[in-house]
Design a protein around this nucleic acid. Structure first.
Lengths: 154, 154
DNA sequence: ATTAAATAGCTAGACTATCTAATTACTAGA
DNA sequence: TCTAGTAATTAGATAGTCTAGCTATTTAAT
């Protein structure tokens, strides 16, 4: 896009918000692209991402992270299991529960696809000085807070 | 991921990337929430967003922004038109084309829902000094570039 | 102990949104 | 004018989600 930040003039707040909006838009695009490369739907890919990132999750718990009902989560885990990306294991203490575990092969495949992106983003962060990183991190945290405050409510 | 051991007190690059990841995750959530409040699907809401933001768009052009085929875009515009959120108008010069225009009522409704969020994000930007805003903006632009470089390709 | 309520996951059937392929109408270049 | 290309649509198929209801298990209250 052609909107360049003006040198000399002060940068208006809404221009910064616009840059943020561009990031979220680019993120939506890349999410579709990564899913396509993995041969998964967007939600299925995002679910794998959550499984790699976070601790052990049950099907419904996983679905909640994606804003879906437990029935849909069952179907989601079915699909992931069918392609060998996850396995259902019994929960160690609660016999009602399951834990959904990514398979070794799936971990490698997913990481292989997202690694270049992660590396690219880390490289951008490396370009900043430690002080600058602190400024940006604080901004990003505040943005997360504000977004979170509009979470599923009334 | 557990707490990273920091060298000195400097903020590591991947911690910053993690903060970015939190933002994109929060954005995915709030996108669902905003769509829910408007009684629209996520793509339909995002389409409205694009129509408010950008210049005049045809159905397929709009669909491309969302990564969908022209047939799906036709259906999308059908849905938006059915609830009175957009109108199909003839393109001024090319009689094959249409322009999809949001209705006055829809503009108000959508803006009413997203305005608080936009205001909240602008307020976060206001908390920063002009210099800090420049630093953050540059980071966000670089992030958009990196994400864009993984765009739909091979 | 027994019973009642809540929780986790699953099944069934319907609905929504997307896709591919083919169709119509129009534009533009040789 | 003929031909190739483009914009939008239609038709049919498929995938993913939803609601509603089910079983099994756990937790809490008699």
């Amino acid at each position: 896009m052609e909107e360049e930040i003006q040198e000399g003039n002060s940068l208006q707040a809404h221009e910064l918000s616009w840059a943020l909006r561009e990031v979220t838009r680019a993120n939506a695009e890349i999410t579709r692209e990564l899913a396509r490369r993995l041969g998964l739907g967007v939600n299925d890919m995002t679910a794998m991402d959550h499984l790699l990132q976070g601790g052990p999750l049950g099907p419904a718990e996983l679905g909640n992270l994606l804003g879906m009902r437990s029935a849909s989560a069952t179907a989601l885990v079915d699909r992931l299991e069918a392609v060998g990306h996850v396995e259902r294991r019994p929960h160690p203490t609660d016999r009602r529960r399951l834990v959904v575990e990514p398979t070794r092969h799936a971990v490698e495949e997913v990481l292989g696809v997202i690694r270049p992106l992660v590396a690219g983003l880390d490289a951008v962060a490396e370009e900043l000085s430690p002080d600058e990183r602190r400024v940006v991190a604080r901004y990003l945290e505040r943005v997360s807070e504000v977004m979170g405050s509009y979470g599923p409510g009334d």
